[in-house]
């Protein structure tokens, strides 16, 4: 949504520090994520992109030694507060991983699982609709509509990844986090996912981690560059790729690193 031509802030990370045991992985991250925009997170391996992404739906909770400090404000609510309902949070903040990870169940069940645990459908018919709409939005419906009751693992890699995206959007999340969603895909499947991302941003806020500079440039409106656990520079994608302010950013995106 826009107010006076300016995008609303959907997520605001404030002074976020993350530690794995004694080792600090993120240092004082401050980043505003705009609503209905695609934000790309880039940076060399190990710089903390995935760690940051996991802060946004408290996925770091499942890592014992991981400690997160600072605030992550989503819809004016700090999700690091004790009172945060993590199950509700993950319903609102969906995630798609690097490797497609469908459940070892049918296509239909892969998608209906989320909506059913969240009690989103009152009848079989309603559930059918959710499954169909989700698959359509993920641009997979036409390819699989006749085999909904076959196992999801029987799809190709690109189809599996779109299935995972369909699964993520089935619960109508406000935000979708994607951690290198195309790294295992061919250029055509990649293009389909990128087209999908473009489409999804009308209704969702998207944050994508990618190692492909070209992909970041293609799909995102905003880009953040991480290096050694710090957010070095963030801003309009256009600016970052044509004329970044920071030399480290420039060295990274032009392939002059290390």
């Amino acid at each position: 949504m826009k107010k006076n031509g300016v995008n609303m802030i959907k997520i605001s990370a404030k002074n976020v520090d993350v530690f794995y045991g004694k080792k600090q992985a993120l240092f004082n991250i401050n980043l505003d994520i705009e609503e209905n925009q695609v934000t790309a997170l880039i940076g060399p391996s190990g710089c903390g992109k995935s760690t940051f992404l996991r802060c946004l739906n408290r996925m770091n909770d499942v890592i014992d030694i991981c400690k997160v400090q600072g605030e992550i404000v989503i819809n004016d609510f700090n999700i690091n507060d004790k009172g945060c309902d993590v199950v509700r949070l993950r319903e609102k903040i969906g995630m798609v991983f690097q490797k497609p990870n469908p459940f070892p169940k049918t296509l239909y069940e892969n998608i209906s699982y989320g909506p059913s645990i969240h009690g989103m459908a009152q009848s079989k018919q309603e559930m059918d609709e959710i499954v169909e709409i989700s698959l359509k939005k993920a641009a997979l419906w036409e390819e699989v509509k006749d085999r909904l009751h076959e196992p999801g693992t029987g799809l190709s890699g690109g189809q599996q990844q779109r299935l995972c995206i369909a699964r993520a959007i089935s619960v109508q999340p406000e935000v979708i986090l994607m951690d290198e969603p195309c790294s295992a895909l061919d250029p055509i499947a990649t293009a389909q996912i990128e087209e999908l991302i473009d489409e999804l941003k009308k209704e969702h806020t998207i944050i994508i981690v990618t190692h492909s500079m070209a992909q970041a440039a293609r799909v995102s409106q905003r880009t953040g560059f991480f290096h050694l656990g710090e957010l070095i520079e963030h801003g309009l994608t256009d600016k970052i790729f044509k004329n970044p302010d920071n030399t480290k950013t420039q060295d990274y995106i032009t392939g002059r690193f290390g």
């Binding site: 500079m213 070209a214 440039a217 790729f241 044509k242 004329n243 970044p244 950013t249 420039q250 995106i253 032009t254």
Partner: peptide
């Protein structure tokens, strides 16, 4: 090479 930033310019 798909040049970026300074290289693109």
């Amino acid at each position: 090479r798909q040049p970026m930033a300074i290289d693109l310019r």
